[in-house]
């Protein structure tokens, strides 16, 4: 546990000290704010809860993309710069290395996610929404963000190139975004399964974004996170045998 926290702390400092962390934060916040103003608030009168629901809808996309962008460097960069040798020759398990990396990116992403709170706060002050709706939405955003960071970590564990790591992570996100369409063109039982795998539609937009927390969705996100972190650990371990 100590080794994992040590790696997480160093990685967090690397985000804070590098330009990339700020680029992702500024990019996500600016785009999220623009979409909030243009498509959620709009110029016509709307019910506050619908505005909040739309805010969570767009935010889920930006936060998950941010998760992939933040996690692409986690392991690929270590291989690229040769610092993986430092971790490999330390008495740390591969699970601790992956866990520490994931934790740092997730904490940074969580900080970025909480910076969007001013938008629901504006709706709360000027309209009529419950704090429970906001809390449920943010719980969902953090869970989806954790899943995205785990997917990005997996992509980063496979290759040396950060660009290729992004492409791998983006593939999973695009699949998630389009799975509702895929579900319409495939035969049973895949027509039920494919949309179910999406990290957006069935598990976020229909529930968390509307202010509901389903245990099934929480378990789904935690499972996706766990599976991709486990796969990352396995990929990392395999290099000792290759």
């Amino acid at each position: 546990m100590r080794g994992m926290l040590l790696i997480a702390r160093r990685e967090l400092m690397a985000y804070v000290n590098s330009i990339w962390g700020y680029v992702v934060v500024v990019g996500v916040l600016v785009l999220n704010g623009l979409f909030f103003n243009a498509f959620a608030v709009t110029s016509r009168p709307r019910v506050s809860s619908d505005v909040l629901e739309d805010f969570f809808y767009y935010s889920s996309g930006f936060i998950t993309v941010g998760g992939i962008l933040l996690s692409m460097r986690l392991l690929a960069e270590e291989r690229q710069t040769g610092t993986m040798n430092l971790l490999d020759s330390s008495p740390l398990s591969d699970a601790q290395i992956v866990g520490g990396k994931f934790l740092s990116a997730f904490l940074f992403l969580s900080g970025m996610t909480l910076m969007t709170l001013y938008m629901p706060a504006l709706i709360f002050v000027n309209g009529k929404v419950s704090l429970g709706h906001i809390a449920a939405g943010y719980t969902g955003l953090l869970l989806a963000g954790a899943a995205a960071v785990a997917i990005g970590t997996f992509g980063s564990s496979l290759v040396r190139s950060q660009l290729v790591a992004i492409v791998i992570g983006a593939f999973f996100l695009v699949f998630s975004a389009l799975s509702w369409m895929l579900g319409r063109v495939v035969d049973p039982p895949m027509d039920d399964l494919v949309p179910y795998l999406s990290i957006y539609d069935a598990h976020f937009i229909q529930t968390f974004a509307k202010g509901r927390i389903n245990t099934e969705d929480v378990i789904y996100y935690l499972s996706v996170t766990f599976v991709f972190l486990l796969l990352s650990t396995r990929v990392l371990s395999s290099r000792r045998w290759k």
């Binding site: 040590l6 160093r10 590098s18 710069t81 610092t83 430092l86 971790l87 330390s90």
Partner: peptide, 28 residues
């Protein structure tokens, strides 16, 4: 064991003291 590969594994954004402190703690 202490290991120095041909290309030293260094986190270049850290100061020497920070880096060595990190490495020491990494080794337990």
């Amino acid at each position: 064991i202490g290991f120095l590969p041909e290309e030293p594994p260094l986190y270049r954004e850290m100061t020497v003291a920070e880096f060595l402190s990190f490495c020491g703690q990494l080794k337990g």
